[in-house]
Each structure stands twice: as C-alpha cells, then as structure tokens.
Design a protein around this nucleic acid. Sequence first.
DNA 1: CTAACATTGATTGTTAACAATCAATAATCA
DNA 2: TGATTATTGATTGTTAACAATCAATGTTAG
Lengths: 225, 225
Amino acid sequence: MDKPLESLIVDSILDAIADQRLPAGTKLGEQALSEVFGCNRAHVRRALSMLTGWQVVDHLPNRGAYVATPTPRDARDVFQARRAIETTICRNAVREATDADLDDLRAHLASEDAARGHDNRPALIRLSRGFHILLARIGRNPVLARYLDELTMRSSLIIGLYASGHATLCAEDEHAGIVAAIAARDEGAALALLDAHLRHIEAGIRFDDAPPAVGALSAALRVPR
Amino acid sequence: MDKPLESLIVDSILDAIADQRLPAGTKLGEQALSEVFGCNRAHVRRALSMLTGWQVVDHLPNRGAYVATPTPRDARDVFQARRAIETTICRNAVREATDADLDDLRAHLASEDAARGHDNRPALIRLSRGFHILLARIGRNPVLARYLDELTMRSSLIIGLYASGHATLCAEDEHAGIVAAIAARDEGAALALLDAHLRHIEAGIRFDDAPPAVGALSAALRVPR
DNA sequence: CTAACATTGATTGTTAACAATCAATAATCA
DNA sequence: TGATTATTGATTGTTAACAATCAATGTTAG
C-alpha cells in the first residue's frame, strides 16, 4: 500500500488539468486545497512539490503554486517532443499489439464515436487523450509512456489556452486510420498517419487569442472521497 | 531569487547520481541528509519528493527514500527512449548549431581527450554525459533537454549497476565523429553515428553481474556551502 | 486627481514537538 | 539448537504553533 494521500491529491489535480477543468494560471492555494481534500497543509505542500516535477505547476517563492501557463515556444517544443516520442511508441505498438490490444483500441474508437454522437465535449477531451495513452500502454515502454502522460497534460493546457473555441480540436476520426494501420501491421502507414495527426492538432492552435482565463478551483476539483 | 535551499539539495543529489558517486540502492535518510546540508528535515523531505519526480529516487512508505535500482527491463526502455529523443535533438542540433556552438562542441572534445589522457575516470564520466547534455542545449528544445537530463541520469545508474568494471564505458571518440557530421550539416551521418553510439553504450552493459553495492552517503555528497 | 506610502489581512515558510511504524536485538519456549 | 515472540532504538509520519512575506486596501501629501 503506498499511502494514497499525496498521490490522491496529485492524481486529482493531474486529472483536472488533463480534462481542462483546471485552466492554466489557476492559483493552487495551500489552504484551499487542504480544505478540498480534507487533509493537512503539509500534505498539500508535498503534493504541490511533486506536481512541479510534472512541469504543469509553477512554484513562485512566497507567492504560491499556479497551474503552468505554457508559452507559444513551449507549445512548439511540446509538440515536437510528442512527435519524437509517439513515433517510437507507435512503432512499438505495431510490433507488440496483441489481439486483445486491438480489441481495446476498437472499443476505444467506439467510445469516441459515442461521445461525438452525444456532443459530449468533456468526454471527448478525455477520450482523445486516452487514445494516445492507450497506444503508449500497448507500446509497452513505461518510460516513454510516462513522458507521454506528461506531454499530453501539457497539451491540454496549451489547447485550453490557444484553441479553446475551435471545434477542430477533436481529431475527426484520424484515430481510426491509425488503428487500422496497426491492425494491418503496416508500420509506415501508422507512423505517417500519427505524424499527420499530431501536426494537425498542432496546426489547430492559434496564438493570437491568448485569454488568460483563470478559473475557480473548488468547482474544478471533485474530491473522490 | 528562487529559494535555493531545496534546489540545492536536489541538484547535489542529482549530480552525485550522474557522476556515479551515489550508487543505486543507497538509502537517503532524512536525518543524515539534513545533517549533511545543515538544514531542517522538512526541507530534505520536500527535496526527496521532488527527486521522486526524476525517477531516480524510490520512496517506500515508512521505510524511507532510496536511490532507484533500475531493472534490465528499465535499462532497455531507457535506452530506447534515449534513441527516440536524441534523434530529434540531433536533428535540431544539425539545423540550429551556430559557430559558437560548434566551438563549444570542439572545446568539449578537447576536454574529453585531456581527461582520457590523464586517466581521470570521474571526469570522463561527467564529460561523457556532458556531451549529450550540450547537444541537447544546442538543439534548443528545453522539453527534450529536460527528458534527456533525466534519461542520462538513469543511464548513469544503469551503467554503474551493470557495466561497472568495463573500460569500454567511455565511448572512444565516437563523439568526435558526431561533431564532425554536425559541423558538415550532414544530418543523415549525424543521426547514424549517434544511433550507433547509443547502441554501442547499451551493448556494453552486462546483466549477469549485478552487484547491489550500496555505498556510503556522506562520502558521496559534498555540501557546497 | 495622481502618486507615493503605511497599514492590514491573508498566505506561505519554518520550526519543534509528538505519534506511529519498522528493523534489529534480545529473550523465551519447544 | 532453532524458531517464535517481546523489547528497544531509530526512523519516518503528523500536527500545530509561530515567523516572514506579499498583495491589497486605505490614507495622505503634492
């Protein structure tokens, strides 16, 4: 058992960032968090210092912790890193995917379709990220999977900042093409489709509209007690 | 000014790991560290939780923090991740390197030669890692550079564990070839040489000899007060 | 009316004392 | 003798109180 107190706080905040419920720039006050999670301030403090390691929380001395606000520069670097890492992940997935993995992928596509059908945007955001996470799990390299976790989280912040209004956010069904290529063990096609997909996402961000919309904290964090 | 107290502890431990002064499995006791750094135990505690984010310190509840001991599986994944990331870094370096950068690279090669000439193994370990870090800086993608930082540190632990005795550790002058290719703006050659270099390092590790040699703490950490 | 300044409230940083847990030693019993 | 069980010392975990810092409000002079 790994004392799930700090981990709970960390995971809750990471989830909230990934789901775009916690926008960039939100202040993460120690007292506020300790009330939300019903715990000591020291725990919050430890959780926040762990979160700085995920590059999604900035810590300003004597001023507190804030959800990171990636710059356009950061956005470019993050997406380049994603292409570098997801290329290898995808190559692994083409090689390693079992029949059960392919079933998981197809089930995931079905969930995405359902969410799209119901115009369920929050679910679509979560599933859209989940597809890449699933791919990383199938690739069976936890080191790369961990980095992708982090990069998709930063992507959520970037998209929330610079592409909030765009409907083109949720990548049509480019995911389906990638799954088909993996099922066919066609590495070249899979890599090409994935690269195009990532570039498509990146092309959807607009740096002219940068609304530093800071959201409320307690509304975004649901304490899963 | 960013309160360099926790950062100092973190950096000192990271440096010690990178230089192979802190071997895998070493216990990082809170009291011991607070005495070494002459600070409060709470600071040590925060530093340790930051270090877990670097994947080089494992935290066992109620048992303390230990320098991570990568498994052979981890080793394979880490080196695959390095190839994925350094490939892109190298491509960037070929494109972005200025004349000043090339001078830095050549100066670095000279330092390596000097260290090799004096049989200065600690310096050679440090410089060997420094070459890849320098390449990452020239590539001008801080996101990738940060990941490479982490991966080279884990590589140090792996090499210390599984290739401690081998002299083949310090990559001859494969570095020189990479620098030449970058100077010639020959992307293909640079990528091929780098990939071969990384595979060569990985090939040098032997999983049969796994001595969990746990070292002393205070000897490895020098407090830079 | 504007700008500089002082006060105040809230938030973060620091420290020390106490409680809980674990590992190793010592003791007991078969 | 060998294994099991207490005991003990050390280490980690938790909490609360106090100090330092900052941002915002309100005040005063120019």
